[in-house]
Design a protein around this nucleic acid. Structure first.
Length: 287
DNA sequence: CATTTCACCTGGTGGC
DNA sequence: TGCCACCAGGTGAAAT
């Protein structure tokens, strides 16, 4: 169920553990759901590749992979470069996906869909009960690297942010959840950032003033950065690569606080449905 | 095209 | 304890 801060936490944790390791074997469960690119191509493509780095793009974990032994470097006469990225494994965690680095003896959790055996002897496992997650393999000799569907909310500038919402009639909350506009914002951080910006979730995106949009952009960035520092939120079963829970949920101002007093004014937090999602706000603090 | 709704899944919770 | 309705951090296809 992870959003940007949770995925960032997971990617950092996995990177710290498996960077420089090598994939020696690949196992996938029987479900067909998790494969965004063909399963057989993933099995073959992942094997015998070095893991150069693991990072986050939007809500996706991107595993950067090197050349396979025997594969030639791109371009004639290019120098031998062990860190050249030749392929990517892209993991979307959906609502309940987890990436775990374990020993091979560790109990295999129910709903484990992938197990990558590493040269160090450990395993990278993908576990996802609801099966909304997706796995994709990209060979960069055959196509482009993964860029994410929209713009990164942590780095977008004021003007570009305003342009995203210009002329749009849908609710600002719905616009924040649209991954082709901004990548990485989900239900928690949409609600939290709208609270900190003092904007009601049903306001039409295109009707917000430049001042309001700039407040929103800054609130969003601040909330995401703060959540990353705390290791993300863990409302129910989210656990990062280390098995440690995030602590940002303790600082939620509105998300899943229906009926509880607003931390700023004391009025009860309201719950409505916007874009088919539970939406929480303070009617006094948000206009 | 822009926007809305709903299906896709399993599991946890709370009411009766 | 069981049964049931409802809820959940996300998409992406179909309908409007």
């Amino acid at each position: 169920m992870p959003e940007l801060p949770e995925v960032e936490t997971i990617a950092r944790g996995v990177d710290a553990r498996i960077r420089g390791d090598r994939i020696v074997d690949v196992w996938f469960g029987r479900h067909r759901e998790p494969f965004k690119s063909p399963r057989a191509g993933q099995v073959v493509g992942l094997r015998e590749r070095q893991i150069i780095a693991v990072h986050r793009t939007g809500k996706h974990v991107v595993v950067e992979l090197g050349r396979r032994s025997g594969e030639r470097a791109k371009g004639k006469g290019s120098q031998e470069d062990a860190a050249e990225i030749a392929a990517q494994w892209i993991v979307h965690l959906g609502m309940t996906g987890r990436l775990l680095v374990t020993t091979p003896e560790a109990d295999v959790a129910k709903h484990t869909h992938a197990r990558l055996t590493l040269a160090s002897g450990r395993e990278l496992r993908f576990v996802d009960p609801r099966r909304f997650g997706r796995l994709e393999f990209r060979d960069l000799r055959k196509g482009l690297g993964f860029a994410g569907p929209g713009v990164e909310p942590l780095t977008i500038e004021a003007e570009a942010f305003a342009v995203l919402f210009h002329g749009r009639k849908l609710a600002i909350k719905a616009a924040l959840l649209n991954q082709t506009l901004l990548s990485g914002v989900g239900n928690i951080y949409a609600d939290e950032s709208l609270f900190h910006a003092g904007i009601r979730p049903r306001r039409r995106a295109g009707q917000l003033t430049h001042v309001e949009l700039e407040k929103l952009r800054r609130a969003l960035r601040k909330v995401l950065e703060h959540a990353i520092r705390l290791g993300g939120s863990s409302v129910s079963d989210y656990v990062d690569a280390e098995g440690v829970r995030g602590f940002f949920q303790l600082e939620h101002c509105v998300y899943q606080r229906t009926g509880e007093p607003c931390r700023r004014c004391g009025n009860a937090i309201k719950r409505i449905v916007v874009a088919g999602r539970s939406t929480h706000y303070c009617a006094h603090c948000q206009k």
